[in-house]
Amino acid sequence: MTDERSRDRIQSIERGVAVLRSFSGREASLSVAEIAARAGLARPVVRRILLTFEHLGYAESRGAAWTLTPRVLEIGAGYFAASSLPEISYRYMSHVVERTGDTCSVGVLDGHEIIHVARVEDHRPLPDSVRIGQRLPAHATALGKVLLAHLAPEELEATLAAAPLEAHTPRTITSADRLRERLAVVRARDYDVSIEELYPGQVAVAVPILVDRRPVGGLGVSSSTVRETEQSLTEVVMPLLREVAGAIASAYRNANPQRFRRSAV
């Protein structure tokens, strides 16, 4: 479907955002060629954008390598306000880590990916540790599936049509039909357990954070096959997550009354 507002968009801003998003990996710096390949832009265009960001203080170059500066954090500062989901969630996530000894995360759905917006790690961090702002495939994560399960049917079908169901391990669901079946189960029980679907040796369980029966995010615990089993995640960790997700949802609703108007009694 054609975007009716496409004529009102500013292409130069879209390109600038594409350059910023090129730095979403684990590399500390990138060359113009690497950024151009990731952003799908011509090198001269990327160079001009980087020079503009350098002038504004958001990027700097060292020889042929470019890095972002701490000033880019200003861009996301508004999202992490006191009433935001991440800031409210942090008050409760440490309780989960203390009780389980595992890593606790909050994620939100963006298309076919999950974005981690809050994370508290145990003193024994997992390999391939996720960073704030990092994107992971929704179909291969417990956090992703509890949020996909709450999409309206037409939204889910649009997401599945656009989503590459790539295999990350032999356990990853790569069939749209199998994923629909899994999401139906997740929707019925309102939690998901993922066993080595994204990384070998890693397991996870997640529940939605529901405000007025609508998900504002997902709360999950990730661990290893050495520390947790599917049974322990389901019987011990999941009930704790439900309790904490309820507390987060209540606090988030109270902190944002303008978003959630109570129906007149």
Rank of each mutant, 00 (worst) to 15 (best):
T2Y: 10
R5W: 13
S6G: 04
R7F: 14
S12W: 13
S12T: 15
V17F: 06
A18P: 00
A28P: 00
V32R: 05
V32Q: 10
A37N: 03
G40T: 14
P44G: 08
V45G: 00
V46S: 00
L51S: 12
G57Y: 06
G57Q: 09
S61E: 11
G63S: 08
G63L: 07
P70A: 09
P70V: 13
R71P: 06
R71I: 15
Y79E: 15
A82P: 00
P86T: 13
I88H: 03
Y90I: 15
S94C: 07
S94K: 06
V97H: 08
E98F: 05
V106H: 00
G111Q: 09
E113S: 04
I114S: 05
R119K: 12
V120S: 02
D122E: 12
P125A: 11
P127H: 05
P127R: 00
D128I: 03
D128S: 08
I132D: 11
Q134G: 03
H139P: 00
L143A: 09
L143T: 12
G144R: 01
V146R: 04
L147N: 02
L151W: 02
E154D: 14
L156Y: 05
E157A: 11
A158Y: 04
A161T: 12
A163N: 11
E166L: 10
A167R: 10
H168M: 04
T169V: 10
R171G: 02
I173R: 10
T174S: 06
A176Y: 04
A176L: 11
L179N: 02
E181I: 10
V185Y: 07
V186W: 01
R187G: 01
R187M: 00
R189S: 13
D190Q: 14
V193T: 15
S194E: 08
E196K: 06
P200N: 05
A204F: 02
A204C: 08
A206H: 08
A206S: 14
L210M: 15
R213Y: 14
R213F: 13
G218S: 13
L219H: 01
L219Y: 03
V221D: 09
S222M: 06
T225G: 11
R227Y: 03
E228F: 02
E230F: 04
E230P: 01
L233T: 14
M238C: 15
R242Q: 14
V244S: 04
A247T: 08
I248T: 09
A249T: 07
A251Q: 11
A251M: 11
A251K: 06
R253D: 13
N254Y: 09
A255I: 12
P257M: 09
R259T: 11
F260L: 12
R261S: 07
S263F: 10
